[in-house]
Each structure stands twice: as C-alpha cells, then as structure tokens.
Design a protein around this nucleic acid. Structure first.
Lengths: 211, 211
DNA sequence: TAAACAAAGGTCAAATTATGACCACCGGTC
DNA sequence: GACCGGTGGTCATAATTTGACCTTTGTTTA
C-alpha cells in the first residue's frame, strides 16, 4: 500500500512519460520514435519507462484511448441534436473514419485486439479500457439506429439493429483498413470521404426500404 | 553525479520540507515542533528528513538563513538613500534587533556558532552560509560608519572603524540576548526600542565627538 | 544464402531514495 | 533512584531509478 503522496507522484510521472511520448509520436517525421527517445524526452532512463508501461504498444494504446475518450466526450454530443438519423449517421461515420485515419497505430491496436486480444501484451487495465471504449462506440451506432427507428425514418425491426450495427461497423473498419493498409499514401481525403458517402448512401437506402 | 532532473527534484523536495517546517515553526503554539510533525506535514517519513537535513538545528538554520538573506536583499537597501548616517545607523539597529527578536532560535544558532563553531552539527554548506551572512552584516555596519565618516558626520579615524563596528555589534547582540534570555515575556517592544535608542544615542554622541 | 551488422526492444544488478519499526536519551514523576 | 512518555536519531528493508548489457529483428554485404 502506497501513501497518498507517492501515488500522486507516480501518476504525475506516468503523465509526464505519456506527454513526452505523445509529443514525439505526433511529429514523428522520417524515423519512428524509439523507447530511448521517449525516455530521453521524459528525462528518465529506459528502464524506468518499463516500470510504468509494459511497452511501446501500451503507451500508444493509452495515449490513443485518451483520445477516443475525448472523442466520445466532446465530439459525439454535437450530433445529439441532429436533424435526421441519416445525417447523424453520416456525420458520425466521417468522424469515426477521420479519427482513425489520423493515427494508424490506434486502429492497428484496436483491430489486433478484436482479432486476437492478447498478441500485444497490454496491461489488464488497458485491455479493460479498450473493451469499454469499443462497447461505447458500438452503443453509439446502436443508438443512432434506434433514433432512426423511433423517428420512423429507418424501417428496421428491433431485432435487426445488431446486425445492422455490425454491418456498419465492418463497413467503416473496412474502409479505414483499406486506406491505411492497402491504399497509397497519395490517397486523398476527398476520395476517402466520397467513398464513405457512396457506401453510406447505399446503406441508408437499404435501411429506409427494409422490411 | 546526478542527472539534471533528479537534482531539480531533490531541490524541490528539500524546499517542500523547509516550507513545512517553516509553517509549523511559525505557529508553534504550546508544544514545540517535532521532526515527526515536520515529516507528517511534508508527507514524508521521518527517515527521509535526515536524507535532506542533518537534524532540526540545520533546518532552523537554513530557514533562518533564508530570512537573513532576504533581510539583506530587501530590507537593507531601504536605508541606502538615508539622510544622515546617524539615522541610517539607528534604522539598521532597530531592524536588526527586531529581526532576531522574532525568532530566538536563529539568534541562539548564530551566537552558538560564533562562540564554539561546531557544537551543533550543521552541514558544511550551512556553516559556510552562516559565515557569509555574518560577514555581510558586519560589512553593512562598517559601510554605515564609512558613510558617516565620508559625510563628515562621524569624527572617526579609519583605523577605529573595526573597533566601533565590534562595539556596536556587541551592543546590539547584548540587547537582544538580554531580552531573549533574561527579559520577561511581558517585556514590551516599546521598552526594547527605547532602550536601543538610549544606547545608540550615547554611541552616536561618542562618535560625533571622538578624536 | 548465410554471415555480419546496426538499431531497437527489453532485462537486471546496482545505486539512489523512502519507509517505519526500533533504540537511546532526556526531563519529569513517584 | 527506578520508571515512563515522548523525542531525536538510526537502520534494515522496500520502492524507485539507472544504464550497461542481452535479445530480437531487419538489412546490408560477401
């Protein structure tokens, strides 16, 4: 059992490392960021880093989970008062894709996590947070569908919401991975978003007609 | 050799302890402050205190040296533009006495130090600082005498400055110790200061006539 | 293709810092 | 003088940090 002060100082140091890592990640130019770089920036030894994080993956995961949490906290509420469910859905989809396109590491971690949860050795707490954030994002899409149903905009049986949600989820992730892993660097944002719109239009078209 | 950050943090911790000690010392009511009190206030263990200070005496000494330094830095310059050397001398004397009357511990440390240098086991650095501050205060009184001589206000041979300085020094310390050790608690500030004025008047009288 | 190599991730014994149970000593009480 | 409560101070132990060293990985070279 640690005293209050020590706990406080430990948390502070953790934040320092995360901050250092984030600043390096964000401007990682030609060469990728190394643990030693982070240690140097945080004014700590390399060994010390491993006292706070299980490895680089965990650091990335935590940084990016912070971002997702922020996303859910600040960005999503904007759509709460949206006009039509379709618009809300489209808005969310673009934001979601944009968000992950900005840092492929998070997406890799998430996908990796969903595929084979324990290939990266993240801490228990980080795993829990990933599950939580994933579920929260899932419930957002579910809510959008429900919103559409309640409004009479989407003709969708309640039992099919989950299937649709998975479908949307898969579609968005598919688009993201397409552009992250297969797509060229030169792939322009514009193209991505027009692609999303095409897909979503078909999707929504179906929703409005179904059953 | 310690790294920059560690040195910074060590200094910060030292300051924290000193701050805690100071706040306790300043409001030490009925019962005196213990090391454990300080440790508790500083959110550290008792043992840790001894990693930063050789003991309570050293803490007191350092706190009070900080005060003396502040005194020399901020209070003394006020008199620099004084009218007559006599006024400057009187102003300084009152301040000096007031300063030490506020905390008898500093005075005891100083006297102890001047009598038998190493009875308290202060660190080398603290000893050095005491010597420095003592010398500085001495030079201040010397400067006042010189100021008076230059102005033609004090009729004093240059060779006698040191003797006069020691004399003043002894007088002030005598007054302080009189009130700190012998004087009753009920001794009023007023009485002290009128006493100082009496002594100084005689002193200055002599200065103006001497040689 | 295999060997050599560089660079990064990761480990660990040693150094530094912090803890709190413990001891010695002092002043007061019976 | 024996006892006792409390305080200054010590020290074995624990927690944290370091940097040299080992391991892995991917690339160049013979």
């Amino acid at each position: 059992m640690l005293g209050k002060r020590r706990e406080r100082e430990r948390e502070k140091r953790r934040k320092t490392i995360l901050k250092a890592a984030k600043s390096l990640f964000s401007k990682q130019g030609a060469n990728p960021v190394t643990i030693s770089d982070i240690a140097k920036k945080a004014e700590l030894s390399k060994g010390a880093i491993y006292l706070y994080f299980s490895g680089k993956e965990e650091m990335r995961a935590q940084i990016l989970l912070d971002d997702i949490e922020k996303f859910h906290r600040e960005v999503l509420p904007i759509f709460k008062g949206g006009d039509s469910a379709s618009e809300v859905l489209i808005g969310f989809a673009h934001m979601y894709v944009d968000f992950f396109l900005r840092d492929r590491a998070l997406f890799r971690i998430l996908i990796n996590f969903m595929m084979h949860a324990n290939s990266l050795n993240l801490s228990d707490d980080t795993n829990r947070r990933i599950i939580l954030e994933t579920n929260r994002a899932i419930s957002v899409t579910e809510n959008i569908f429900q919103f559409g149903i309640d409004k009479g905009e989407f003709l969708l049986r309640k039992e099919d919401v989950m299937a649709m949600r998975n479908s949307l989820w898969g579609m968005l992730n598919g688009i993201i991975s397409l552009h992250l892993f297969i797509g060229r660097e030169s792939t322009r944002e514009k193209r991505i978003h027009s692609g999303i719109n095409e897909c979503l239009n078909i999707f929504i078209e179906g929703l409005k007609k179904s059953k």
